[in-house]
Structure formats: C-alpha cells, structure tokens
Design a protein around this nucleic acid. Structure first.
Lengths: 330, 330
DNA sequence: CTGTTAGCGCCTTCAT
DNA sequence: ATGAAGGCGCTAACAG
C-alpha cells in the first residue's frame, strides 16, 4: 500500500501541486475554502509528507549524529538520554553510532554520518590533534565535543576536570589524610594516539594540587595490576592514606579488593571515586565521589549545536559545575 | 562548498550520467577504460553519493528505529549497544528514540520514525493490545519487540521470565528457605494501560512455582513503601526468609535497607535480584541474581529484523537462556 | 489566488 | 557500450 502524495491530493481536489503545497505548509496566497478542502482531503487520506524528499530538497535532515565509545559507560547513556530529550522537543532525531575507541572506525562513522547529511555531530572522540581537526573541517558541518577536547577551535562542553581533582585533593587534605594514591588509566604512551584529554587534565590537576601542599605525599598508580600495587602501598605504610580514583569503577574495584584483604574503609584507608554513578549508595561503605550533571551537559551540548546549526557562534568551551558528594568511604 | 554530484563527474569525463552511474555502481555494460577514468575522476573529486537522494528513489534508508523507555536502565543501553554493532556491520544506522513510558509519546515516535522511512523498528513498548497492534499494522513496516510482548502476532525476543522466576524459587527452596518475599512493581492497575508483560510473566511464574511446593510460604510486596513492609515482615517472623526481587535495583535497595537495620545478609535473610547488572559484585555481600545475555538479545533482535526486512519470516517468539549467578547474598 | 516549471541527486528503462 | 529521458516526492520561483 503506497503512501499518498501531494500529487494525489492535487488530483482529488482538482488543483495543482503548488496549491496543495501552499495549503499544507501554511503558505500565504490561497483561498481559505480551497485550503480547507485540501487539508480535509489530506487528512482523510492520512497524508504524511515524505520526509526523505523534503530532506533532499531542503538539504536538512533534522537529525544529529552522536558518536561515543560505547554504551557500557553510564555517562554516555545519560548524556545521550539528555540530548535525545532536547532533540525531540525540537524535532531533531538522533543517529547513535559507536566508535568502540577505534580511531579509524570513528572516522568512518563520521564519514557515514556526513554521507547521511546529518545536520550536526556531537561526540566524545578518540582521535585528536591538528590532523583530525582538518579531517573534520573538510566536512564543514557543525560539531560539538565533550569529554575529550580535540582542539581549541572545536566547541567543547564538559566539567573542569583539573579543578575537580584539585577540589578532591583539598577535600582529602582537610580530612587530614597525609598521603594520596591516585588511580588513573595509563597515560602518555607514545605509541598510542588516543585522545586522553580528560584523564590528562585530571592528572595535571592532581600534580598542581600537590605542589600547593607541602604536607601531602602521593603515589600515582596507573598500571594494569593497580590493585596489587595499591595493596602493597597500603600495607607498607603507616600514613593516613586516601585512594583517589578517576572513575567510580576503579573505586569500586579498589574497595572490593581492600575489603577482601580485610582493610577497612574508611578506618584504615579512604577511597574516593569520580562520576558519582547511580549505585554508589548501595555499596558499603557508600562511596564518596565527584558529581556533575550529565543532564546539563547534554542540554548544553544540544544548545551549542543548535547555535551552530543556526549559523550563530557557540562558546569554544563550556565547563559546568561539579561537586563532591560526601558519603562514608573517606 | 557544494558536494560533487554524479552530473559533474559526467561533464568532466564527457560522458552521460547514466555511464557514470554504471561505473560507480559496478553495473555491467561499460568499457573498462571509461569506467576507470570515471572512477579516477570521482575519487579525485572526493565524490560521495547523496544518501538522501538514494533513499528517496530506492525507498530504503538503511536505518532502524529503536524505541525504549529511556537509557537510565542499563538493560536498554546494552541491548542498543548490541544492535548498533550488528547494524553497523550491515550498513544500518540506528535512530534512537525514547518513550519515557508515555504511551502517546511512544505512538508519536513510531509515527515519526515511519515518516522518516526507517526500514524497521525495534522496541520495548509501553502500549499493548489489539488496538495498538492495529495501529502498528497500518504502517506495514517490520517490527520486532522485546521485554514487553504486544501480541502473539508481533515477533518478540526475550527470556522466559516465567521459567526464570521458577528457577529462582527452586534455587531458594534448595537453599532451605521456607518463605519468600517477592518484590515486584505494582501490577494490575485497572486504570493504567501500561504494557507490563514481563513483570506479569514473572509474577505468574512465582505463583506457579509456589503451587508446586507445599513447604514454602510467600508474600508479595509491590507497594511503594515496600522497604517498610519488608522490614515488618522480616522482623516479625521466625522463618528462614529470602527476598526475591524482580530487578537488581530493588534488590540493592532492599539490601541497603536491611543493612541499615542491622539485619544480616544472608545470615538473617537472603536477597536475590534479577538482571545481573554489572556492579553487583561490588556490593557486600555480592548479590545473587538472574543473568541473561543482552548482547544475544540484541543479536537476535537484529537477526529477526533483517529477516523481516528481506521479506522472510521471523519467529514470533524467541526466548533466550537465563541462568542464576550465585553470589553471597542468598 | 492558482498553475506551471524547474530543480534536488539519484536510479532505471529504453533506445541507439 | 553509451545516451536520453522519466521519475522518486517535495520545494520554490515565476507567471498569469
């Protein structure tokens, strides 16, 4: 069963397609009676404009492409959830594509999104640097990023990672901890080209924070066997130690490992996470973490992308608020 | 900067668009030399076919619409993750749309997806029943569902909820529990039209399981203040009680509440969840739960939808395996 | 006010 | 082996 077209309505009403178009799109210059008749007929036929044809001629698809690593990370899900909601209210639909942290795949996905004429792209990218920026420039399409900044020239919405870690250190300092074990993903591999802007910023924040303190010792753990390393560090020390993790998943892992070794949190050692994922309250002890609003990040991303789509400027960097959610683990 | 079209290539090569088309699409009936030349020119111009134009004429957009409640539920994220992966390998893109459990919104989203000419829809629906089935039928578009079954006529991929709960009960029975408190969402409201197929199946499974056992007491808790209710049930009883929750979130909530009241798990009372979300191992005690592969559900959904798109039959019901992940809470 | 016409960029059939 | 022409369904400028 074919869809009815504006042409069929025209025939049925004994008018031209131009007139039908005017009626359907509230264009001026049409007699009220004919307009009404056309609308009535269109309605009775269940007429729906062909969106693809519209897109073709208008060169606008009312869709936004989103690229993230995957949906295992709750952060991505929640940001997408937020973008989708704002999108819907503005008649934008969302293409969801995953890069699986594969830089070639990511580029491929961008190419495909562009092929499909999306009006804009929102992404957290694996790629980075000038070359990638040029790659993006060639498409001449609005792009907004989050999490990992690509360059100063591409709008970026996130939190102030550096300050967040500084705040965490200061929080721990106030709690009289004398040593912080900082747990983060591996950085600075020369052989990888992965964009690790966010973790890098956090590490910088950590180092800067330490420089401002003279009564705080520190250790940075980023190896694969970090649990083992931490265990050793904790065992052979008489200091008051806090373990500051750059993601809640690390923190949960650490807490589990400590408990298994009968090390008490927070009595023996403190643990702090980052992201404030939704189940922290269910662990015991409940984990202290750094929180920020993913809903707001989504809103801000959408906001910026709308500006760009409308050929207005968008801020090159928007850093939203974060705050420490104090629970029992530290 | 405009995109190059096949027409421009034609001009540059001094051939017609038809010939360009043949070259670009590996169609027979073209001299190798001209083909090569066209391809070379196309390549040097960075030619990319206009996907929208293609969709218009082919009446195929190579996109699948997905509708779920929202992305707060990890289950949805993971299923979508899976579908996206299979989709990508087959050149399908995914429109992600959320219904927020709003039945009108869900219908609207379906309409919009159809307007955008998606090739198929995969969804977990809020709507149900004959009327909704007819609503869907009118679009004449491949649809596959999961989680909540709409009707016997619309393909459905999920697990055997009923059997899963039966297995859980039998597992608890073997563990010598004499009473089960079953925690589930509110069901059977006459004034709501929400599709609660999955929770209903689970409840039926629970009731059937009980009927087969004569040494098992039970209590069903589905009120909003279930934590309070449970607390009372647990306090005033000398039986060996297990609390069987139809979702891990309930189970976590219950466990937290019990711990707060100094009731020990599993010594004083057992707790069991459903879904086996990824952080159960981090709680203490680690929660026993019912697990099933969301990756497989995604794969199966995609598989069925491909069959339907290719106008082949797809099974009306596919129930994948589940199994109990024994941890410490029961 | 309404009709005509020419695209958008691609696919497809029919001639040559 | 190639070209010409019509069509997908809608938009938009121009006539009348």
């Amino acid at each position: 069963m074919k869809n009815t077209t504006s042409f069929e309505i025209a025939k049925l009403c004994g008018v031209s397609r131009g007139t039908v178009y005017r009626a359907l799109n509230n264009k001026p210059g049409i007699k009220p009676e004919t307009k009404e008749k056309i609308l009535r007929v269109a309605n009775s036929l269940g007429y729906r404009p062909n969106f693809v044809a519209q897109s073709l001629v208008k060169k606008k698809t009312m869709t936004i492409g989103i690229i993230v690593f995957d949906l295992n990370n709750r952060i991505f899900s929640q940001i997408i959830n937020s973008i989708e909601s704002y999108g819907r209210k503005n008649n934008y639909f969302v293409y969801l594509t995953l890069s699986h942290k594969d830089s070639d795949l990511e580029k491929e996905q961008i190419q495909y999104l562009v092929d499909r004429q999306v009006d804009a792209i929102i992404m957290m990218s694996v790629n980075k640097g000038k070359e990638f920026e040029d790659f993006l420039k060639q498409f001449n399409i609005p792009i907004v990023t989050f999490g990992n900044k690509i360059s100063e020239n591409i709008p970026f919405v996130w939190i102030n990672d550096k300050q967040a870690i500084k705040d965490a250190v200061s929080y721990l300092h106030n709690k009289k901890y004398t040593k912080i074990i900082y747990v983060c993903p591996q950085l600075g591999h020369l052989y990888t080209n992965e964009n690790k802007y966010s973790p890098e910023q956090r590490l910088e924040g950590f180092i800067e924070a330490l420089e401002e303190l003279d009564d705080m010792n520190a250790e940075i753990v980023s190896t694969h066997d970090y649990l083992q390393t931490i265990h050793e560090l904790v065992s052979h020390s008489s200091e008051k130690i806090a373990i500051l993790c750059t993601s809640d998943i690390y923190a949960l892992q650490v807490a589990k490992s400590l408990k298994k070794n009968n090390i008490k949190i927070p009595e023996d050692v403190g643990v702090m996470g980052f992201d404030n994922i939704d189940i922290l309250e269910f662990t015991s002890p409940a984990l202290t973490s750094i929180s920020f609003s993913l809903e707001e990040i989504g809103r801000s991303l959408f906001n910026s992308i709308m500006h760009l789509i409308n050929e207005e400027d968008a801020p090159k960097e928007i850093l939203l608020d974060h705050n420490i959610i104090a629970r029992e683990s530290v």
